[in-house]
Design a protein around this nucleic acid. Structure first.
Lengths: 223, 223
DNA sequence: ATTGCAAGAATGTCAGACAATCCAGGTTGA
DNA sequence: TCAACCTGGATTGTCTGACATTCTTGCAAT
């Protein structure tokens, strides 16, 4: 009996599993910024051989999720605020463009999905689960990026967002940030739903600038 | 006697050398798009072991310079025109921004470098060496990106440009393209030199749109 | 306290092996 | 004749084990 039908066309390899597991671990903040990763430990924890692990590490290095310095091995990069600022600036460029394009080309079905994800964030925002807040907010934006009509825009954006995941969790846990974030996102949604490209750009820009300011506040207050 | 002083703080590893060599080979069009790369052959040609080679391939995969499909191995991706269009669109976003920022913040010394690189392109444009044309034109833009004040912008841009290197060589060899390209680039330079941000953006946008059109022409005429 | 050294740990790199998978070409059956 | 099947070679995915090089850390000596 084919209880679990496996249509996966490209079989998942050990390398891919390893990359995914490590990426998830990094994005959820399991490792301290600046901390070093020991190959032998990771091998044992993940149950893979050293060559496979090293391939995975090279992939993550190219994604800039880890740094590998020769003869010292891999470590979690500690993002400085100036680097984070640079990322936020490029994110702004991409997100504003995506929101604008999205407004003029999204289909009804995807619009409903966007609405749903906004509702999910609303739910999360009223709770105190900051992980859920970050996740649902990320979902909201990936729907926008996925419907902007340019897969490259989406790809580049994903890469950048991953690198500042560290800041997102902290800024979202700021007092009142989730609620104001909700209001900003609703504005974006309304603009897109109305097909108003200009408004969508404006709302998107406003949202990102506030997110950036929140990130900076959360950073100064604790670091 | 310290004839060749070696201050290189991070020693070059086999892996790095391999990535660099392969990247250069790919960018200079040594491999046909769509062609497969055989690990054992590359190992022999590069004189490295399979584990080292595979690490290098994973890095290049993450840069999107090659594709690796499980159980089939690495190959050179054949870029479709729609993908290339998407890349050109994002490039536009980045380059326009960079040119604008550059206009308002570049220093005198770097401006001279930019001028020199423009002269180098002028020299190449009047020759028939399309490789030199592509190289010098790339130099011109990397100086702009390097002086826009945002290293992330530069990094993302470099990644995108690498992926369409295939088209650049062909479009540059179009009749008269080099000369008109030169005129457009001079406009960009003049705007930046004058510190006119708005003009720099406009000139940069115009240049990219023409480059894109040229790439499309060169594609339709031969493919 | 600073310097120098030595042992241990970790990485960079290779060789070799083997199973799983893919591919090309020939063989078989309708 | 043509399609489906099958088989052998080629290629990749993965592991084990090994060793030289480099880094780190703690101790000893000045």
């Amino acid at each position: 009996m084919l209880s679990e039908l496996n249509l996966r066309i490209s079989p998942r390899t050990v390398q891919q599993e390893t990359v995914d597991k490590l990426r998830l671990a990094i994005l959820s903040g399991l490792f301290q910024p600046g901390s070093r990763l020991i190959e032998s430990q990771l091998c044992a924890q993940l149950g893979v051989s050293r060559p496979s692990l090293r391939e995975a590490l090279r992939s993550l290095e190219a994604e800039r999720l880890i740094e590998i310095v020769p003869n010292r091995g891999p470590s979690i990069p500690a993002l400085s605020w100036s680097e984070a600022t640079a990322i936020y600036e490029v994110r702004e460029l991409l997100e504003v463009e995506a929101a604008g394009r999205c407004a003029s080309r999204i289909h009804a079905e995807q619009l409903r999905e966007l609405e749903k994800s906004l509702a999910a964030f609303e739910e999360a925002a009223s709770s105190n689960d900051s992980l859920a807040q970050v996740t649902t907010a990320a979902d909201f934006y990936s729907i926008i990026l996925a419907n902007c009509g340019n897969p490259i825009l989406e790809e580049v954006h994903r890469g950048l967002v991953a690198r500042i995941s560290f800041f997102r969790g902290r800024s979202m846990s700021l007092e009142g940030r989730a609620q104001s974030s909700l209001a900003e996102m609703r504005e974006i949604y309304e603009s897109i739903a109305a097909g108003d490209e200009k408004a969508a750009r404006k709302a998107s820009k406003r949202h990102l600038l506030k997110a950036k300011a929140a990130a900076k506040m959360s950073m100064n207050s604790e670091s």
